[in-house]
């Protein structure tokens, strides 16, 4: 039941942000699937297996990256259209909020703590997002080099 609620709300939330940014209508289903999958995996990793939150964020972003890469090529959409709405679920809003909250409460060490955590989570999301395109382009280049060498021989 818990997981089911997560799948539905993760998808709905991604579609909701795609409505705000006026994404094309034909992309709505793709965005929903990507958002639901990445959010559910992130949630399971964080709340059930009690993994480090950085790793959970990394895996969530990685799933967005790999799905966006393939859907973008399959349906001829710019990758960004899929990535932006799905990424909004993973944004470390809670940490950013606590950074400001502690600052207001004059708890400066807590504020710096939370700020650094926000920064780290954001960087890990970025790394996760770029894993797939990086390896995909590397593999494509490798294949091209191989093909060229075969032709010369």
């Amino acid at each position: 039941m818990d997981i089911f609620l997560n799948v539905v709300l993760g998808g709905l939330s991604a579609i909701g942000f795609s409505l705000i940014t006026n994404a094309p209508r034909r992309a709505a289903g793709i965005i929903g699937i990507t958002g639901a999958l990445s959010w559910t995996v992130f949630y399971i990793l964080k709340n059930y297996s009690h993994m480090n939150i950085l790793i959970a964020n990394y895996v969530g972003a990685f799933i967005i990256g790999i799905l966006a890469y393939y859907f973008a090529r399959m349906y001829h959409l710019p990758e960004n259209i899929i990535v932006i709405p799905c990424l909004v679920n993973l944004v470390p809003g809670g940490n950013a909020y606590r950074t400001i909250l502690y600052m207001v409460q004059s708890n400066y060490s807590g504020s710096i703590n939370q700020g650094l955590q926000t920064f780290l989570i954001a960087s890990f999301i970025a790394i996760g997002l770029f894993t797939t395109p990086y390896f995909a382009t590397s593999i494509r280049r490798l294949k091209m080099i191989r093909a060229n060498r075969n032709r010369i021989e």
């Binding site: 609620l5 709300l9 939330s13 909701g16 942000f17 409505l19 705000i20 959010w39 809003g93």
Partner: peptide, 19 residues
């Protein structure tokens, strides 16, 4: 109106995280 409802759905997702 549709955009506003979408915004409502976006704001529900973090509630899941805090159970």
């Amino acid at each position: 109106t549709i955009k506003a409802i979408g915004a409502g759905f976006v704001s529900m997702a973090p509630m899941l995280l805090f159970k």
